[in-house]
Design a protein around this nucleic acid. Structure first.
Length: 205
DNA sequence: ACGGGGATCGGCT
DNA sequence: GCCGATCCCCGTA
């Protein structure tokens, strides 16, 4: 009932750029008493422990970002502008780095996602805030251990979307004001569920 | 198609 | 007090 091999600690215990790229094509699963929602990860961003002023942990540990300082493979969920965003924590405990999940291709529970959004949306998981609302991911999941295979986790998924290394696009990150020139956003080309905002470096669909 | 603005909240200075 | 790792709506075209 865990939808295949649950990604374990070693997967996350690497640098955030590697994890951000390898997360593409994996499946994020969310289970609540209401049911299961799941989607293929198609867009991510890396936030580095060193030299990255856009990282919430750039100026040290606070009550908000403490999950990033914990062991890899846990969630870092924070709130911004009325919505939550989901990150996975990378690298060893004490090294504050993470990968932001920005978009999914839904493969399970798309109707439930739309109910949670409160409207019909043909793309209910484009954007980090929207996908959290669609999957009922909130601050109570901050620090959650993603390797347990309960409530919130990531599976190998047996490659539900086929792509090659050359299908991965790399651009600067969306919405950040600091370190806006670092090429740390990764997404699958020709994937309609990738966040559709006009952004330097994006390709027309 | 694109851009501007407002909503409204927790975390930090 | 201020300011976002956002989203949606509503102008203009």
């Amino acid at each position: 009932m865990s939808w295949g091999k649950v990604l374990q600690r070693e997967f996350y215990n690497r640098d955030p750029i590697t994890v951000a790229k390898e997360l593409l094509g994996k499946v994020l699963v969310r289970e609540t008493p209401e049911g299961v929602t799941a989607g293929v990860v198609v867009e991510t961003e890396a936030y580095l422990a060193q030299g990255d002023p856009a990282n919430h942990a750039f100026r040290g540990m606070t009550s908000r970002n403490k999950s990033m300082f914990g062991p890899p493979g846990h969630a870092y969920v924070y709130r911004i502008h009325q919505v939550c965003c989901l990150n996975v924590v990378t690298e060893p405990e004490g090294v504050p780095s993470a990968v932001l999940i920005r978009a999914l291709m839904p493969i399970e529970g798309i109707e439930m996602m739309r109910e949670r959004l409160g409207r019909f949306d043909s793309l209910p998981t484009t954007g980090p805030g929207k996908l959290c609302k669609a999957m009922a991911i909130d601050l109570s999941l901050d620090g959650w251990d993603l390797t347990l295979g309960e409530q919130l986790w990531v599976v190998e998924g047996n490659e539900p979307v086929e792509f090659a290394e050359s299908d991965i696009a790399v651009t600067t990150r969306i919405g950040v004001t600091a370190a806006k020139d670092l090429p740390l956003r990764f997404f699958l080309k020709r994937q309609p569920f990738v966040n559709f905002v006009s952004h330097r470096g994006d390709r027309r669909r």
